[in-house]
Design a protein around this nucleic acid. Sequence first.
RNA 1: GGAGAGGUGGCAGAGUGGUUGAAUGCACUGGUCUUGAAAACCAGCAGGCGUGUAAGCGUCUCGAGGGUUCGAAUCCCUCCCUCUCCGCCA
Length: 424
Amino acid sequence: MHDIRWIRENPAEFDSAMAKRGVETMSAGLVERDANRRAVQTELQELQTRRNDASKQIGIAKGKGEDADVLIKEVGDLKDRMQSLEEKEKTLSAELTEMLSGIPNLPAEDTPEGNGEEENVEIRLEGNPPKFEFEAKDHVELGENLSGMSFERAGKLSGARFVVLQGALAKLERALAAFMLDVQTGEFGYTEIAPPVLVKDEALYGTGQLPKFADDLFKTTDDLWLIPTAEVPLTNLVADEILAEEDLPIRVTALTPCFRSEAGAAGKDTRGMLRQHQFNKVELVSICHPVNSLDEHERMTGAAEEILMRLGLAYRVMVLCTGDIGFSARKTYDLEVWLPGQETYREISSCSNCGDFQARRMKARFRPEGGKGTQFVHTLNGSGLAVGRCLIAVMENYQNEDGSITVPEVLRPYMNGLELITAG
RNA sequence: GGAGAGGUGGCAGAGUGGUUGAAUGCACUGGUCUUGAAAACCAGCAGGCGUGUAAGCGUCUCGAGGGUUCGAAUCCCUCCCUCUCCGCCA
């Protein structure tokens, strides 16, 4: 959510930043509506002042046993005008809020300009893709040959874009998640949270999925929504709160299933478990002081990268361009892991700095020490990492010619020491 | 699901139609006193919006939304949430 006062004072800056995102100029309409709203509000407040004064006088008069009919009549006459102004004010501010809540965040100054995915910029390349003496298989073939992955059975249960994991592969998935949580909580200071995965409208509004992206979500018959990412419950932990400055930063992590309708992805990544309706993810969320969010963003990205490094997976770090960053983000780093089965890098983590955009929607503030008033916090979120995709990466990068999979060393403690996953 | 109770400032907790945005206590901040600290005493201490260069002034908010009234934390309606008991249940 944007600060209308800032837009009012910087309309040109607002429009040009939006243009970079491919959103058409809109400050004029917003500013006009806002001016309208304020005029009505001021007029209404003047009437309210008069009414309050008169009502107090009535109270005093009645207390003394005096007659107050003249005043009562005057206030009665104000009523009609007040009511219509109130309605007008309500409509105008509801319209303004609706317009504002559908506008994406302003990109950061150092977010590169571009129209779409193709114009994202690679800033780092880490590790080396493995070289195989044989033709690498993809995870589907590997998984099915190991009897550890069934899309057929998942289809029977739930349809397309689901998977059933079994045996050592199911365990490997669990090992990955546990490893990620242990690193993030033990070494990067994140507090582990076990949040609800069903949430109310307000929570999704707070992080920006609603009102615009309802189609991407699953909704229950009880009007609760399945979370598309733990970013939603974790970030909204501080909604409607005024924190003490010393509470910041708040770093939290959670392993949760994530649910996405993938409505816009028909026909895309249909093979395998790259794009599922349900997948596990370890999410990282930071709530921090505005002056620290840039540093926090780098730190968070590093925390996610650490997992890939320790797993010995090759990856690259991309900065998303203005045409590809998400609705709530000012700047986003994507981590893309090398997948031998596709001979390409694929997204496995996305780390975003949302500035105060979500904080405004959630009304998440802190009280600066010594200063007066409150300020909005900054929020950041990142995957640390997507567990399902990480499973794919491990399988494909650690495969052997016979179809077996070597368990990366850091995962062996989580696998009862198992070193090799073989069929049977 | 059934029956009941309740949601007030950072916390606890008064307040059931009238100069109440809200007593009191705790916490916190500043001051006095003290060699220093504690104690005691004094003062300050909600948020949003509007207006104004500012000091300030105004307005709204006592879970949320509506209603009654000249006037609502207080009365009425709807919803949300919490607690207790019963039922069911991982």
